[in-house]
Nucleic acid binder design. Structure first.
Length: 426
RNA sequence: GGAGACUUGUCCGAGUGGUUGAAGGAGCACGCCUGGAAAGUGUGUAUACGGGAAACUGUAUCAAGGGUUCGAAUCCCUUAGUCUCCGCCA
């Protein structure tokens, strides 16, 4: 949620920035400022009236103590009258505050100056590419054929157990996934991220805090009985650890990592893009989250990008880093870098990580603050990124490393997996 | 799931209707004291939103929400959480 002060200070700049993000309902800015004016006016009216009520009530207390009953009764009458006039003002204040809040949460975050204009994924900027695209031997096939050949992921049985889009990992497939998770977590811990294992369901306040509600309600699985949401990413529980907290400035940056399954309804997805492991309703992911001092957040973003890049390099996968254009960025983000790995058999790029700076958009909702030098509380900046999403990494590892006899695995994973390659019938 | 106890500021803890935003202590900050430190001592030490050039000041907040009352941290209701006992259980 944007801070109302930002809108008030420079509405024109806010409108310009929102335009970069392809947000068109610019008149909402004026509406919000008008609502805030109304709020201030109403609050002043309410406060002034309430002050008189409070003073009078205290006076009654004094009169009662002295036994001046009649005077007290007279004042009681006066307060009753005042309260009658206060009632509609109070109701109006509540209504205006709610309306103001409801409108304010509709606004997406402002893009940083680095964000390129653009509407579609084609407008994203390629920052750099790395790794080498492999030349596959003839007879190479996409991962959805490889998983059958090596009997490591079973979608039919997953569909039987739960539904379409739920993968059942098996044997070497299950073990590879576990090995990768372990490796990713160790890699992150070595870079100073504290490991967490969070709850996989969250309450409404947490889902609201990171911006999933009210914007992306349909994306999450909802447990009606308890009003819990299955997490779409561990960013949600992890960032919410610090909801409503004032942290010590010297504790910043706070660096956290967590593995979790991620649950996404992906309503409306279909076709070739969702084949095999490309898009599933439950996938495993290791996440990074940072809370930083506002002046250090872009430094932290660069550090996270470089961290994820090193991780991909260690897996020997061809990758590229994109700076997302305004139109392709998420609602809450100020600047996002996407990482894609090249799937050699599908001959396409697959997104495996998204690293974003949210600035104060999330911390304003969650009220995560620190005290600055003058003792004033300030909002921290929040950032997060995947390191990494498992299914597509596995898809690429399988496809890019296939030979006619087996599938070779990158060296870093050998000790975690216990073998150097996938073999048939083992 | 059943029964009971509880939830106060950074922390501990007082407070059962009337100047209580909240005693007292600890912690922390600054000062005094000291050769330096400890001890001692003085002062200060919540958040949000308003008004004001500022000094300062108004309102709200004692888990959350609602109610009773002229007045609620204190009484009532609902919800959440913590603890104890029972039940169930990996």
């Amino acid at each position: 949620m944007l801070q109302i002060q930002v809108l008030r200070q420079n509405p024109t700049a806010v409108k310009e920035k929102l335009t970069i993000k392809n947000y068109t309902d610019l008149s909402l800015i004026d509406t919000i400022i008008a609502l805030d004016d109304e709020r201030k006016k109403t609050q002043l009216e309410f406060d002034n009236n309430k002050a008189i009520v409070n003073i009078t009530s205290k006076a009654i207390g004094g009169l009662m103590a002295k036994g001046q009953k009649e005077e007290a009764e007279a004042k009681k009458q006066k307060v009753a009258t005042l309260k009658a006039t206060l009632q509609p003002i109070s109701e109006k204040l509540t209504a205006v505050e709610k309306q103001l809040h409801d409108e304010l949460v509709k606004l997406p975050n402002l893009p940083s100056d680095l964000v390129p204009a653009g509407k579609t994924p084609e407008d994203n900027e390629v920052v750099r590419e790395g790794g080498v695209k492999p030349t596959l031997p003839s007879g190479s096939v996409p991962h959805w054929d490889l998983i059958k050949k090596y009997d490591i992921v079973d979608f039919e049985t997953g569909a039987k157990i739960t539904g379409s889009g739920f993968a059942l990992f098996k044997g070497q497939g299950a073990k590879l996934q576990r090995a990768l998770i372990q490796y990713f977590l160790d890699f992150n811990a070595a870079a100073g991220y504290t490991e967490f294992h969070p709850p996989f369901m969250v309450n409404e306040a947490s889902a609201y805090g990171t911006g999933q509600l009210p914007d992306k309600e349909g994306q999450m699985y909802h447990m009606q009985e308890d009003n819990f949401f299955m997490i779409p990413t561990s960013e949600v529980p992890i960032t919410n650890i610090y909801r409503d907290e004032i942290v010590k400035p010297e504790s910043l940056p706070i660096k956290m990592t967590a593995y979790s399954p991620c649950f996404r309804r992906e309503a409306g997805s279909f076709g070739k893009d969702v084949r095999g492991l490309n898009r599933v309703h439950q996938f495993e992911k290791v996440e990074l989250v940072q809370l930083t001092h506002p002046e250090k957040s872009y430094e932290a973003l660069d550090e996270m990008v470089s961290h994820v890049e090193k991780l991909l390099q260690s897996l020997e996968l061809p990758y590229r880093i994109l700076r997302l254009c305004g139109g392709d960025m998420s609602f809450a983000s100020a600047l996002t870098y996407d990482f894609e790995v090249y799937s050699a058999a599908q001959e396409k790029w697959l997104e495996v990580s998204s690293v974003s700076n949210f600035e104060t958009f999330q911390s304003n909702r969650m009220k995560i603050r620190y005290k600055d030098e003058s003792g004033k509380s300030q909002l921290v900046h929040t950032l997060n990124g995947s390191s990494l999403a498992l299914p597509r990494i596995i898809a690429c590892l399988l496809e890019n490393n296939q030979t006619s006899e087996n599938i070779n695995l990158p060296e870093v994973i050998h000790s975690y997996f216990g073998e150097k390659q996938f073999t048939k019938n083992s």
